[in-house]
Write a protein that binds this DNA or RNA. Structure first.
Lengths: 350, 350
DNA sequence: CTGAAAGCGCTTACAG
DNA sequence: CTGAAAGCGCTTACAG
């Protein structure tokens, strides 16, 4: 912003036309123009090294073609999702500004929301927010449309809808897979800190147990894993006890691939064998889950699809609203579910 | 942007003052004002639910307090770096817009650069760019200051400087470590696709070999790994041959932790033992390198420091330039090196 | 087909 | 201490 850049005024002078004309040709509106004018303007624009000032254009049009995305971090799942969202936005002529809330930090989140809103983004995407519904409403309540991803049970006046991974269905499938592989005892390694997202998995796990595991014969349990290392240790100890009872392989569904890997390592370090003694399934299909040994069976995520649908939901709304100008903001609790696919790998095979 | 948001005009009317006054109190400039005025304005601003329009403000001030960052992806290293950069920017009153170039894709990169420049960001951060120096210069040549991270050997008129990880020094250290652990034969698993960054590692590896490995006694070699699975297979076969010669453990330095993990898994699947037969060192300290089994020795990156220094370099320039307004853009090839720290773990211990 | 003019929402000297 | 006015760079009806 230092060297005073060239503006349409400069072009207008150099080309001997009005700034309106310059603007017209540069924006290829459906305004009739002479070939000659077009050529002249385009050429001098190139010669002068003109670059449109998006700030000014946005202010004038009252539309930014910018979308905002807030993720809890750039790690694993969210990083890949953010990437897919950027692509999806671009494919639709928009541009996605991505912020990391530094791990579910409500203050960070609020700050980023403020920045995005003061930039007058056309729409906003958030995960199940860390902030309270009230303060979310206060902030987003200015009419900026909001689409949630992996958000459940939000007041319907807050968001247009949500695009959610079907963790529940995926986990049910995972349980079925473990049962199929002959597991005589089932465990879910839980991360309570990851609230809603953990709930969904748990629901799916329980559902699976009731459907495929005949609870009377195949006992199932939930093991809470906290950040403390002891907690992982204890869980491993419990699993090993089960293994010692020697009633067939034990099946473990972990909150995500990271936890699956850490847990598997604990077992291996101790001489417990995977998949012979314990079969493990993770979630995310993080690259390392395929690269480690034994490779970890996991639930794959269709990032592109989730992103495409989220952006679509937003754009449909934006387009509709453009028609009936300031119609009252339509909201809803439409939920779209993205199925997850089980990728069987060595960690859970017979 | 739908529901016509409240502006300073609305506040001015409601509070019975001029818009200049509203702007003054809301921006806490060093302009003297009555307590009364301040109170009145602030209160009505709150009542009306005013939120500053950053677009308008930026246009008017000709300064955005926005910085742009382009990374090749949000994966592993870059995702964590991006997060640190966001923090560093915020800590300094700026705000970082992060884009992923979809894996060294020159077109994406160009597109993102254009977007960022047309938003008139105050400064730009890029990794060693995928685009040609010429087109980079053409694009950034409008005076927007550029700081590189992990960029080597760029024409000095293109960037203010670079903040680079000392891959070379780190790799030398890694070789020393492997030699210390008794390795009688050394290998570097190379990723030529990652150009400059691979070069640096290679340099460090060779340096280490010449310093610590007495090449006459300890042969060293470079194995090129391509995306094709065979390539990894072949490398593993070579290493196993070395192991079979039974001349002590073989040491392997991998391009990064991902490659280290994949390679280790190949060995383990085949009955080769880590660290008994082969000792492995990776780079990045990705979370999985600590969680897998055996845990992988790696070179840790001080993301916060790298980010802080990069932002500092930018801000120093911005501040200096503010003083002497349109002074010619000062550029240079200042390079700051961030040391890497070896984290010894099981994969390389005796 | 082209241009004069108003306007987007804010900031910043400059008078008073 | 406060306000009138010009300006940031562009877009968009509206005349001609």
């Amino acid at each position: 912003m230092s060297k005073r850049s060239v503006t349409i005024v400069d072009i207008a002078e150099a080309a001997g036309v009005s700034i309106a004309t310059v603007s017209n040709v540069l924006n290829r509106r459906n305004v009739p123009m002479t070939e000659e004018t077009i050529r002249k303007v385009e050429q001098t624009a190139k010669e002068l090294g003109y670059r449109r000032n998006a700030i000014a254009a946005n202010l004038s049009r009252k539309k930014s073609y910018e979308l905002g995305l807030i993720v809890p971090s750039f790690g694993a799942y969210y990083g890949r999702f953010a990437e897919a969202m950027e692509q999806a936005a671009h494919a639709n002529g928009y541009h996605m500004s991505v912020f990391s809330a530094g791990g579910m930090n409500p203050d960070m989140e609020k700050r980023h929301l403020e920045v995005l809103l003061s930039r007058r983004v056309d729409g906003l995407f958030c995960h199940g927010l860390a902030m309270s519904p009230e303060s979310t409403r206060a902030i987003v309540g200015d009419g900026t449309p909001l689409v949630l991803f992996n958000g459940w049970g939000w007041p319907e006046d807050i968001a247009l809808g949500a695009v959610n991974l079907d963790f529940s269905g995926g986990c049910t499938e995972a349980v079925r897979h473990l049962a199929d592989q002959g597991c005589r005892s089932l465990f879910y390694l839980s991360r309570r800190r990851a609230l809603a997202i953990n709930e969904q998995r748990l629901t799916g796990f329980r559902e699976g147990v009731s459907l495929y595991a005949e609870p009377s014969q195949i006992p199932a349990a939930v093991l809470e894993i906290t950040p403390s290392p002891d907690s992982l240790e204890q869980a491993a100890a419990q699993i090993k006890d089960k293994v010692a009872e020697n009633a067939g392989p034990v099946g473990v569904l972990a909150f995500d691939d990271s936890l699956a890997l850490a847990f598997m390592s604990k077992l291996l370090a101790d001489g417990t064998r995977v998949p012979e003694h314990v079969k493990i399934v993770g979630i995310n299909n993080d690259p390392f889950s395929a690269a480690c040994y034994p490779a970890i069976t996991t639930l794959d995520i269709d990032y592109d699809r989730q992103a495409e649908l989220a952006v679509r939901m937003m754009l449909d709304h934006l387009e509709a609203n453009r028609a009936e100008a300031d119609s009252p903001l339509k909201t809803g609790d439409r939920e779209i579910r993205i199925p997850m696919k089980l990728i069987p790998r060595m960690s859970s095979m017979v």
